[in-house]
């Protein structure tokens, strides 16, 4: 259930219908993109693929945010708390539940 890996869309294809040719460091396969097409898919996008189907479009900004946050670990506590806002992902736009002294 869990082996899903990031792959880059090389091109959209007609077979399968709703298909794309994707690549993972030089290995290519056709996958079905029906489940991510509603978000809009174009060559150059990255998707998460599992058993020949794309499940999700990868959000680069979120990836970089995460890495930046981790890089900040070990810096001052205040800086850490500042970026902690990025951890919250609630449905309502910013009901920030914690406030720090």
């Amino acid at each position: 259930m869990c082996l899903a890996i990031p792959a880059k869309i090389l091109s959209l294809v007609e077979d399968p219908v709703h298909g794309a040719l994707v690549e993972v460091v030089g290995v290519r396969r056709r996958v079905d993109i029906s489940l991510v097409e509603p978000e809009g898919i174009a060559p150059g996008d990255w998707v998460l693929i599992h058993v020949g189907f794309a499940l999700s479009k990868i959000r680069e900004e979120d990836a970089y945010d995460q890495l930046r946050m981790l890089a900040a670990l070990g810096e001052t506590e205040a800086a850490v708390q500042e970026v902690e806002g990025y951890f919250e992902d609630t449905a309502e736009p910013h009901a920030k539940e914690d406030s720090y002294p």
Binding site: I5, E23, V24, V25, G26, V27
Partner: peptide, 12 residues
């Protein structure tokens, strides 16, 4: 090699 690695990651 990259492609071997990619195939291995894909196939577990």
């Amino acid at each position: 090699h990259d492609a071997v690695r990619g195939a291995c990651e894909l196939l577990g």
